[in-house]
Amino acid sequence: MSVQVKFIHDREEDDGRYEDSEGREYRYVIREDGALAIYEKTGRYLEKDRDPYVVYGSAAWFRVSGDALSKKDRPPNRAYSV
């Protein structure tokens, strides 16, 4: 599934869609400060130290839908924090 971001202001240059393509998947995390981080998942698991694909500050977006980062995206038996 894709991740869809709705922005506070209309942004013609960025439609907010992150689609599955060529084996890639996208996951999102809402951080404690309200920022939205989107990760690109290319394999079975998301690497522990992977940098986000993109981050939007809390003043840029108001709604997100799609696949949130979950335990199934983490490698087994490893500590993981976002």
Rank of each mutant, 00 (worst) to 15 (best):
S81P: 01
S65M: 13
K48G: 02
V5L: 03
D67S: 15
V54T: 01
V5D: 00
R50E: 11
G16K: 05
H9A: 15
Y39P: 08
H9Q: 14
D67T: 10
Q4A: 13
D14F: 07
A35C: 09
E47R: 10
E19R: 09
V3E: 09
I8V: 15
E12T: 13
E47C: 06
A79P: 01
E13P: 00
R78Y: 03
D73N: 13
G23H: 00
V64K: 03
G23K: 02
D73G: 08
A35E: 08
F62K: 13
S21N: 06
Q4F: 14
V3H: 04
P75N: 10
Y80L: 04
K41R: 15
A68F: 09
S70R: 13
R27Y: 02
Y56H: 04
A60E: 14
E40W: 08
G66M: 07
G43N: 14
H9F: 12
V82G: 07
G57M: 08
K72C: 10
D15M: 08
Q4K: 15
S58M: 09
Y45H: 11
G34P: 01
K41F: 11
Y18Q: 02
A59D: 11
E47L: 10
R27N: 03
E12D: 12
D73I: 09
K71H: 15
K48Y: 01
S58L: 06
H9K: 15
V54C: 00
S2F: 14
R63W: 13
Y56V: 02
R27D: 02
V5S: 00
Y28G: 03
D20C: 04
R78H: 06
G16N: 05
V55K: 02
T42E: 15
D14W: 05
I38L: 03
P75Y: 13
Y18I: 01
Y45R: 08
D33P: 03
H9I: 13
W61V: 10
V5R: 05
S58A: 12
E25Q: 05
V55Q: 02
L46N: 04
P52I: 00
R24H: 05
K48W: 01
A59P: 00
V29Y: 02
R17T: 11
E47T: 11
E13Q: 07
E25H: 02
E40Q: 15
R11N: 12
K6L: 15
T42C: 14
G23M: 03
T42Y: 15
